[in-house]
């Protein structure tokens, strides 16, 4: 008897509330200024907590709260699939201004390099701004006898070289495939679950080459375990540890550069007033000297671009990558 009463109670209450409550909030008002009214805004970071990408976002959140009026920024890590899972979650979230995506190079690279992505991410975002750029460094073991890209080329042509990469088709994979292909050779790519594991593989002798962000390999260059043989950029790195590392351009391979970018976006369909609100916030936050310093400490270069310029930059990147990946045709799968 008691149980029947409790069940009826539950059913009645829930029906009442269901009838009253209804579902979503009224459609966002697309005119006039908008703020999150103090609510929580999730920044989806498609990288694992603790990596340099994640920490740059956290640097903004922890030091830049004052630039985001009426907002509580919360970092949400959604790692996996080389960013695919986080990006998927982001592009499919509601365009109500409460979800921001930390959209970086994988947003462009993944859909262009592999055919198995669930979405073409860069077509499903409204860019807010670009925050930083970063470059990549090619590492080999110190005892490998390889000192520069020329040596690497010879090794690739003479024996099977193993490349340890962080994800299939991503920024740690395609540069060396491209390099090998253009020199008439091939590398065997083995996928690891992150930069740390890839570096460990090279250290342990399971792989010969790895391409990582400068900060991730820094300690191993310093300790003498790894040798950095090239910076994949037009300029050398300012970090003293990498001062003597020539760029790929200097070594005669101007087509082997890869500049990664980091930026923020909103899901497609977000009303313009919401986009403008965040454009203003991020523009102020990214000019903050503390945030810029933190970003540099993490190995990235602050390089702000506002929404329209970022949009153009993205289109340019897409075209660039499409060209490279069509040349690679299937080597990455």
């Amino acid at each position: 008897m008691k149980r029947i009463i409790s069940v009826m109670l539950v059913l009645c209450l829930s029906l009442m509330l269901f009838a009253q409550g209804g579902s979503e909030a009224a459609a966002a008002d697309s005119s006039g200024a908008w703020t999150p009214k103090g609510g929580n805004v999730n920044i989806i970071v498609p990288f694992g907590a603790g990596g340099s990408s994640d920490l740059t976002v956290r640097a903004i959140v922890n030091n830049g709260a004052k630039y985001f009026p009426d907002t509580t920024l919360v970092v949400e890590n959604v790692p996996g699939g080389g960013c695919a899972i986080g990006l998927t979650k982001f592009v499919t979230s509601k365009p109500d201004g409460f979800t921001i995506g930390n959209t970086s190079t994988p947003m462009v690279v993944l859909p262009t390099s592999t055919t198995t992505q669930p979405y073409v991410y860069y077509e499903m975002v409204e860019p807010i701004c670009r925050s930083a750029v970063s470059t990549f460094v090619v590492y080999v073991r110190s005892d490998s006898g390889i000192y520069n890209l020329e040596d690497l080329k010879n090794e690739i042509l003479s024996r099977e070289m193993i490349l340890a990469c962080n994800s299939k088709g991503g920024n740690s994979h395609w540069e060396m495939e491209y390099f090998a292909m253009k020199n008439g050779g091939d590398v065997t790519a083995v996928v690891y679950d992150g930069g740390a594991s890839a570096i460990a593989a090279v250290l342990g002798g399971h792989a010969d080459i790895t391409v990582q962000a400068p900060n991730d390999g820094r300690e191993y260059v310093r300790s003498g375990d790894l040798r950095a043989i090239a910076v994949l950029n037009t300029e050398r790195l300012t970090d003293s540890v990498y001062a003597d590392v020539p760029t790929s351009v200097e070594q005669g391979y101007p087509w082997l550069t890869n500049v990664g970018f980091q930026g923020f976006s909103l899901p497609k369909g977000t009303p313009q007033n919401i986009i403008d609100f965040y454009r203003e916030c991020f523009r102020n936050a990214l000019a903050d000297p503390v945030i810029m310093e933190e970003t540099e400490k993490l190995g990235m270069i602050p390089a702000y671009l506002d929404a329209d310029e970022f949009s153009a930059f993205i289109d340019e990147s897409v075209a660039n990558y499409k060209e490279i990946f069509s040349a690679l045709e299937g080597r990455l799968d």
């Binding site: 409790s6 539950v10 209450l13 829930s14 509330l17 269901f18 409550g21 579902s23």
Partner: peptide, 28 residues
């Protein structure tokens, strides 16, 4: 009740949902 909890949580909010279902479970 468990299924109802999950179903309602989006619709009435965490606090209300927890209150209703928890009470129902305790009585159960």
């Amino acid at each position: 009740e468990c299924a109802l909890y999950v179903f309602l949580i989006d619709k009435v909010g965490y606090f209300v949902d927890t209150t209703i279902i928890l009470f129902a479970m305790i009585k159960l």
